[in-house]
């Protein structure tokens, strides 16, 4: 702190600190605390707020456990978020390996630029673009038919298919970068040592490269899973009649039923249950939190 004051002067330092504190407190902590508090209070007509009926209760949380439909939507959300995470891993791992160990270091800036250009466009626009691409008479089907890959247009937007595509597209880079970092920190001599000892490429990956990149895979997976489970834009825009995402239920509570109390309770349930799920998965794969922070 005194270091900062010496370097930037008192005015600038205190401005920085106050701005950071404001951001954290007013824009992050307070709204969440407000929702958290609200999630324990019943949904009441305005006149009753603050009255004798306005007591703390777990009723909002229990609503979820009493509703089989909501539970099933939650489970499907977790299942499909896991699938998204897995697909992202399958795409990102070879790409990360290629970028960190095969591609010439001089071509890396260009490759990364190409990879990140889509991020310049907002998420809504990107999801909407996919909506157009995947529509029945959209460019993808036209292209595939012209190339004689398929004969009749495919209905892409049924079930969770389009949501999966959209989520993978949106979040795959969150998987790529941590794995890239992890593999890049692996001494190339170790890969060569394995090969020198006679190891075929797949065993080198299985025994040397994959174990080394485990922390990167774990942090990438946690990020992609949490972002997918908490995503609202993609599931809404690319939804089909049969795909329901848990965040959509939260949105319904808040904006359609105007019941922010139950909505908040659902939001916190999503957070808590997903955290539990991630913790359990990390246990099974023997990943520690400290590994991820590395």
């Amino acid at each position: 702190m005194s270091d900062m004051i010496r370097r930037y002067g008192f005015t600038l330092t205190s401005t920085f600190c106050l701005l950071t504190a404001f951001w954290l407190l007013v824009l992050v902590i307070l709204p969440n605390l407000y929702l958290f508090e609200n999630s324990f209070r019943p949904y009441l007509p305005v006149v009753d707020i603050g009255g004798p009926k306005d007591v703390y209760t777990l009723k909002n949380y229990l609503t979820f456990f009493d509703s089989p439909i909501h539970i099933s939507v939650f489970i499907w959300t977790v299942v499909y978020s896991s699938i998204v995470t897995f697909i992202c891993f399958v795409i990102a791992y070879p790409l990360a390996y290629y970028l960190s160990k095969v591609a010439h270091p001089r071509s890396l800036p260009t490759l990364f630029l190409i990879l990140t250009i889509p991020l310049w466009v907002s998420e809504i626009m990107r999801s909407f673009a996919w909506f157009i691409i995947l529509s029945l008479k959209g460019p993808l089907n036209i292209l595939l038919i012209d190339a004689s890959v398929i004969e009749k247009p495919i209905r892409w937007m049924t079930g969770f298919r389009s949501v999966l595509i959209g989520l993978v597209y949106t979040y795959v880079l969150f998987m790529l970068f941590p794995i890239f970092n992890a593999i890049q920190s692996l001494d190339t001599n170790q890969i060569e040592a394995a090969e020198d000892l006679g190891s075929p490429w797949w065993r080198t990956h299985w025994r040397v490269i994959l174990p080394h990149s485990k922390p990167g895979i774990a942090s990438g997976s946690v990020m992609v899973f949490m972002l997918s489970a908490g995503s609202i834009l993609v599931p809404t825009l690319l939804a089909s009649t049969s795909s329901r995402w848990f965040t959509e239920i939260i949105q319904q509570w808040m904006f359609e039923s105007n019941d922010w109390n139950t909505g908040s309770a659902y939001a916190f349930l999503l957070l808590i249950l997903c955290t539990l799920f991630v913790t359990a998965v990390m246990r099974t794969f023997r990943v520690k939190l400290s590994d991820i922070a590395r």
Binding site: D187, N189, Q190, E192, A193, A194, E195, D196, L197, G198, S199, P200, R207, V208, P211, H212
Partner: peptide, 21 residues
């Protein structure tokens, strides 16, 4: 012949032991 097909074994300058095994 690829390195994994040659009857040679290389000891690297930095040894390159596998730290996770």
């Amino acid at each position: 012949s690829r390195p994994n097909q040659r009857p040679t074994a290389l000891i690297f300058q930095n040894l390159a032991l596998f730290p996770l095994m």
